[in-house]
Amino acid sequence: MSVQELFKKELKVVNMGLESFYEELKGQAVPAIHVDWKPAAGGNAKMVSLLGRLKGK
């Protein structure tokens, strides 16, 4: 299915990350659910590196 075709259909959206995107869609009555996703360790590079050491990375 092309992108053009997709946008001609009714959208059902799964939003990940920034909640404001979900709020906007909800405000326009677009069926959407929000996934509370955050980068590992909140993006703290030092902590990501330490966790990586424990995963053999």
Binding site: N44, K46, M47, L50, R53, L54, G56
Partner: peptide, 18 residues
């Protein structure tokens, strides 16, 4: 938790576990 994780990884490295 951050300090504990740093110490934990450091200890495992000292022991040659990583």
């Amino acid at each position: 938790f951050e300090d504990a994780l740093e110490c934990y990884v450091g200890l495992l490295e000292e022991e040659g576990m990583l």
